[in-house]
Design a protein around this nucleic acid. Structure first.
Lengths: 249, 249
DNA sequence: TGTACATCAGTGAACGCGCGTTCACTGATGTAC
DNA sequence: TGTACATCAGTGAACGCGCGTTCACTGATGTAC
């Protein structure tokens, strides 16, 4: 079992041990990430990691209590990295919530295409024998989603969600579907209007679906670069959602 | 190494040995499928299969030359099963190509939701260490796709692809994207018009994307049953493609 | 219909491998006086 | 500044496991006469 993060005095200037521990923790994770990317996600092996890092396997247990804990740490890192990236791009896009949504979706693809194995770890088929601990992953795993909902809500409150389009969209969808979304809305985002939530779900599934196809190579036979197609899909999704183009404001 | 499929006289009434061989081959595959579904795709193990079938591991080698050959056989079976199912539904839908498309997409989801691990095997993250032999999988793996292209082509030739909508769609997409699709079209379906191919790619990616999200459980937090949503997405895809609703013919 | 031989199915032991995890240990870094 | 002790990092051997694959073998099914 690894000792808890090194006593009380961690805020004072870090000791040699503490710096080494941080460096090695990072190196272990980096090597693990690289091996997953090279040999497939399920191929993660503590022994292989230890070999490459240049230490005995048993020493890894000073840093991660088990293989599963290493996987969890990698998951937390991936969720954090993609959310940080998306948030930074959204901030850079300025105050307009529709600009923010565009930036968020584009940034999400950007990170995912650049880190396909990270994307696979988060959204692909789960690793055999690994059970994800919800208490450690839930908050960090929903950051990007939460950001999208927040942006659509902002746009809605700013009157940027065209009433007619949103109403038509709601009417065009089967009641069974809308009811399910509404049930989820009540539990999770009760401050939002149903129209806004339905529209967000629609955008998210379209783009996440397209992205998973791209990252997992299913578009490759037809498209050499899915970038333009994705960009067009983002615009279509925004338009279909009834989110007024900020260019025309 | 397994002997080739039992001599020259296989068309005469089957001998006892031949029947047993067929039965056991089927049973091995069934057990393997079940274990993959239960314990995760990557968890397929010859020894575990042999244990459950009740024979020595070594005996499996009379039926499949290696673990990879078993995986390949499972893949061929899955591709065949889903394509058979889709084709049957399309045939049952009658001669109208738009009805056919609707039936094809619905049937594809139907099979995939009923056989999530089969879907995962075909379209999910690849198994570690397994390399798919293209010569055995290409033909069978493209059957459903080929059927969709054929149906859209039929619809197009029957004047069911609304010229205005198709042209607008083409114009709305970035040239870089359309060029990539056109390059693929020239190589693979040169008899089809570009508009028809672009529209097919669009339909396929939308539905496959949505489906992969459903099967891999990413919709589960929000939707308890994605059926209605999928059905609506099918109609939207057909409408956006400019495929005239047969109800109005 | 019966016999001699060839073919095939299935067994069980063995090989060599890599894996996660534990444990008693040595030596280095940090702390208190 | 120096010394005595506590804490921590890292080692190497071992345990027990499951894996894919090979091989010499026994016994059953099929074939030819």
């Amino acid at each position: 079992m690894p000792p808890a993060s090194s006593s009380t005095r961690s805020s004072a200037r870090p000791t040699l041990r503490e710096r080494r521990r941080q460096d090695l923790t990072a190196e272990i994770k980096t090597v693990a990430r690289r091996q997953m990317a090279d040999s497939g996600l399920a191929a993660l092996s503590l022994r292989a990691v230890a070999r490459e890092v240049g230490m005995a396997v048993s020493a890894l247990y000073r840093y991660f209590g088990s293989r599963d804990e290493l996987v969890t740490a990698l998951l937390v890192d991936a969720f954090t990295a993609v959310a940080d990236h998306v948030e930074a791009r959204v901030t850079a896009a300025g105050a307009d919530p529709v600009d923010g949504l565009r930036a968020a979706m584009t940034a999400f693809r950007e990170w995912s295409v650049a880190n396909p194995s990270g994307y696979g770890l988060m959204y692909g088929t789960p690793l055999p024998d690994y059970v994800a601990p919800p208490d450690r992953l839930l908050a960090v795993g929903t950051r990007v989603g939460a950001l999208l909902y927040r942006l659509v809500d902002e746009a809605d409150r700013a009157g940027r969600l065209e009433a007619g389009v949103a109403r038509d969209r709601l009417a065009a969808l089967p009641v069974e579907h809308v009811d399910q979304v509404d049930a989820w809305r009540r539990r999770r985002v009760p401050q939002m209007r149903l129209e806004a939530v339905v529209v967000t779900v629609d955008m998210w599934t379209r783009l996440q679906g397209l992205l998973s196809m791209e990252v997992f190579g299913q578009l490759a036979p037809v498209l050499t670069d899915a970038g333009p197609y994705f960009a067009a899909a983002v615009e279509t999704a925004l338009r279909d959602a009834g989110l007024a183009d900020p260019a025309t404001r």
